[in-house]
Structure formats: structure tokens, C-alpha cells
Computed example of a mutant assay.
Amino acid sequence: MKYPQFLFFACFIMLCSHVVAQSVTKYPTLAEAWQLDSTSRSKQVEFRLLPYKPVYILFANYTTNVNHSPASSNENNVVEEPIPYNNVELAFQISFKTKILHNILGEKLGGDVWGAYTQSSRWQIYNNTLSRPFRETNYQPEAFLLFGTPYNIGNFKGVFTGFGLNHQSNGRSNPLSRSWNRIIFQAGWEVNNVQIVLKPWIRLPEAEKNDDNPDINDFMGRAELDLSYAFGKHDFQLVTRHSLRDGDKSHGSARLDYSYRFIKNLKIHAQVFTGYGESLIDYNHNQTTVGVGISLY
């Protein structure tokens, strides 16, 4: 393992440990996760790192269809010479959030400003031919405003609505550069132990000649539906995306995560993804991946 890669991986582990050390073994409700219930709001602290999206390491992540020649509809972003990637790699993700401002519209109207960061990597650690490179890393900072919307219709419970800005890129140069910026709207509900979060978005336009991936909405979608369910030591999460178009622009994806808690916050983790956009470099590439590893929250 090269020294820079080792240092990067060590920093990843230390940051993950810091974030999850603040979590508890009980699976939080959406209101607790976003400090919208009365107990959480009384204890809220700005600028404290908290868990956001799943934090995991998949020691073996297998794909049915290796993307040897990443391409985009922008002619400047097409790889001409196939790259000899392996179909098994290591994948990991780190993600955290922090509250920046509390009740910006006052106690009655509320409104909390949050910042978040998610980074996911695909590492060809088993590929001796290419000297074990990082195949793809996606960086995703975001900021958003959330409002509590408590109401009940039978077992259907409203929790929050909000909107924010999201940037996602892989930090690479052409022909491998991929990126987009979005305004994301979101709403969260709970039905018994099922958590539901809906996120439609609008992509912010870019100059045509500078757009790494002009058709990304038709593959990575225009909306996302996130369903989470937990019982005992078992956690399930299903995330689906779709382009919301028909015909040859109808594309989508689904990702299922399952984890089993066996030592406090340490879990056995399995993940299955199918469809388009497993990562930004694969935004228009259709594949199914299966991974196994551990997660920390």
C-alpha cells in the first residue's frame, strides 16, 4: 500500500470513530436524528459532528459489469483506451452533519440550518496490474434548511420539510471529470417503524461546453425515495432514484443496505445496488453490485 493511500485510509477510520462515538445503540427516529423533538431540541448543540448517511467499509464489492471505458455525452469526457479495472474492489463511505443555526425564524416558526458532507470511494485495492488505485471518489458537501412539520393522520406522522444546495463531484480532470449542482427539496414522514424521506431536485444549469455530464438527470434521476426500517439489531434501508421520464430517458436505480448490530454500534453490513449511477463516473453505466463489510452506524 502506498504511503498517501495508507494515510488517507487511517484518517478515514479516525474520523468515522469520532462521529459514531457520539451515537447510541437505539435507532433514532427522524425527529431525534434532526433534533426536532422536544427532548433533542432542549439538548441541541451547534457545530457538533453527528451521523448522517451510512458509514461503512465494504471489503469486497463485486460488479456484474465493469465500466472499463467511462464516457459522457460531452465528447471531451470520453475515455478512448479501456482501463483494466477488476470487478471486485473495496468501497467505503464517510458521512456526517452538523447544525449551524437554530430557530433562525424564531421559536414559533423554527428553521434549522444544517451542513453535511459525504464522501464515498471505490478502491481497486486487489488490482496489482494498476498498482491499486482509487478508481473513483465522490465528494458531496451540502447545506439545507429544515422545518419541523409535526402532524398525524392515523399512523402516518409528518416530521419535517426543507430545501438546500448540494454539490457533488469527483474532483478529476477530463476525460474523467463528473459533477453537478442541485437544489434539493425534502420531506420526511414516519409510519410506525418505517422512515420515509422524499427528495426531488432541480439541477442548476451549467455552460454547455463546461458541462461534464449534460444528461446526468436522465440517468441519476430527478428524485430519490429513501425508506428505512429497524427492529431489534436489524437495520434496512432502500434508496431508489428515477429520471421521471419515459421512453429512452427512463432510467433508475435501487440500493438496499442491510446491517446487523453485533457489538454496540459496530455492524455487519451488506449492500446491493442495481441500475444507473452507482457513482458519478458510472452515472450512465448500468450494473449490479454486491458488497459485504462492516458499518459503524
Rank of each mutant, 00 (worst) to 15 (best):
F156R: 11
F147K: 03
Q119E: 13
T129G: 05
V79E: 14
G111R: 04
F147L: 07
T137A: 07
R132V: 08
S72Y: 05
K97F: 03
T129I: 13
G110C: 06
S120G: 12
N127Y: 15
G110L: 02
T137N: 09
N128L: 01
P82F: 11
K99F: 00
I104P: 02
T98I: 00
Q93L: 09
V159E: 15
V113L: 15
K108V: 14
S72E: 08
F134K: 06
S120Q: 12
P150E: 02
S131P: 05
S69E: 04
S95C: 03
V79T: 14
N67C: 04
S73I: 00
I125R: 13
N76T: 06
L109M: 12
E80A: 11
N128K: 13
Q119A: 05
E89C: 06
F92K: 01
G106W: 05
S131H: 14
W123I: 00
A60M: 09
K99E: 04
V79I: 13
P70D: 06
P70N: 12
T137W: 03
Q140K: 08
F147I: 01
Q124C: 09
S69C: 10
S95A: 14
Y126M: 10
V159Y: 09
L130S: 02
Q119H: 03
G106A: 12
F163Y: 14
N76A: 07
G115T: 04
R132N: 13
G110P: 01
Q119D: 02
T137Y: 05
G111K: 10
V78S: 04
K99P: 15
P70S: 06
N87M: 01
T149G: 03
S69G: 06
G162L: 10
A71F: 08
T129S: 15
P150H: 02
S69L: 01
G162D: 08
L145M: 05
K157Y: 11
E75A: 15
Q140T: 10
Y139V: 00
G148K: 12
G158D: 07
V78C: 02
S72Q: 11
Y126I: 13
Y62W: 14
T63E: 08
V78N: 03
E136L: 00
T98E: 06
T98P: 00
T64W: 00
L145V: 09
N65F: 00
P150Q: 01
N65I: 00
N61S: 12
N86H: 03
N155T: 11
S72W: 05
F160P: 02
N74Q: 10
W114M: 06
I104V: 15
P82W: 09
Y85A: 00
G110S: 03
E142N: 10
T149Y: 12
T161K: 12
L101H: 07
A143N: 13
Q119M: 11
E81V: 15
A60F: 04
N61R: 06
A60E: 02
R132I: 08
N128R: 12
S95D: 06
N65Q: 07
F160E: 09
